[in-house]
């Protein structure tokens, strides 16, 4: 576990550090499906925010809009301090690696697209690989790695630009329980030590409670926010937190909100 690195500011520091705001954002697909309707969401700096909801509630769409993939049909996306390429790291549900490139080249990609050659940024790529524990695998090809390792490569690639905001779209949904728990722990450690903001899309109540400082629960048809839960438990969180009574209470509360969301839909 990480040494007790200063936990990122929790609810206290929130009014000062607004990173991003979605103001009345709506999104209608060309086939007429309303994916999001009047979505208002404030993202604080350094928070770990989870978007939780059933399939089709627009949580992935919201994430893509924040990433700048695809247009919005109404409302606006507001970055108080401005935002630009490289400030955002994105982790997809699948590892989304280039099968023809080595682990090193896959992680190097975001920097290469900014015109930075291999030699120039070798250290940064190695550093990102070390963060996810894959320093010995830079010459491997994706097919030689397990599912969990591929996901780690994908995370290293998102980290290599030293982003302010990390967007994760159900990154561990396809992994087995044991790998998922391990990656959850590692992700939390990294988040604590690096001080990014994370927006994490998931449909797992347990995962969201364990990781987040705040959970936003969404409902489908049309995609909207139906509840918000502060997880006011201190970091670092570990196995002890998973066994604790507050954890269970938060899980129950989150679960109830989610059920209400699904009942409404």
């Amino acid at each position: 576990m990480a040494a007790a690195a200063a936990p990122p500011p929790q609810p206290a520091g929130r009014s000062s550090g607004r990173l991003l705001e979605l103001q009345g954002v709506s999104k209608t697909f060309s086939n007429g499906t309303v994916a999001l309707e009047n979505l208002n969401l404030r993202v604080q700096r350094h928070e770990f925010l989870s978007l939780l909801g059933p399939s089709g509630c627009g949580k992935s769409t919201a994430l893509r809009i924040i990433a700048g993939l695809g247009n919005i049909s109404g409302g606006r996306l507001f970055w108080p301090e401005g935002g630009h390429v490289g400030d955002i790291g994105f982790v997809f549900q699948e590892p989304t690696l280039m099968p023809w490139a080595t682990v090193f080249d896959n992680v190097h990609l975001p920097l290469k697209l900014q015109g930075q050659g291999r030699r120039q940024v070798r250290d940064r790529v190695e550093e990102a690989l070390a963060m996810v524990g894959l320093q010995d695998f830079h010459a491997a090809y994706p097919r030689e790695l397990s599912g969990g390792m591929k996901m780690r490569v994908s995370i290293a690639r998102a980290l290599v630009t030293r982003p302010k905001l990390l967007l994760m779209d159900e990154p561990f949904a396809a992994l087995d329980e044991i790998t998922r728990i391990r990656l959850n722990n590692d992700l939390l450690q990294l988040w604590e030590s690096q001080g990014w903001t994370v927006i994490f899309v998931t449909h797992s109540v347990y995962e969201s409670v364990f990781l987040s400082s705040r959970i936003v629960v969404m409902a489908a048809r049309p995609g909207r926010i139906v509840g918000e839960i502060e997880i006011d438990a201190p970091y670092p969180r570990d196995e002890a937190f998973r066994m604790s009574e507050p954890y269970n209470a938060y899980c129950r509360e989150t679960s109830a909100t989610l059920h209400r969301a699904m009942g409404d839909g």
Binding site: A67, L69, G86, F90, F92, T96, M98, L109, P110, L113
Partner: peptide, 19 residues
């Protein structure tokens, strides 16, 4: 997904083609 990724990192047409 890779096309999205390239777009996200601001790849231009030539980079999209080449890489």
């Amino acid at each position: 997904n890779l096309v999205n990724l390239f777009q996200l990192y601001g790849a231009n047409r030539w980079q999209m083609l080449r890489y």
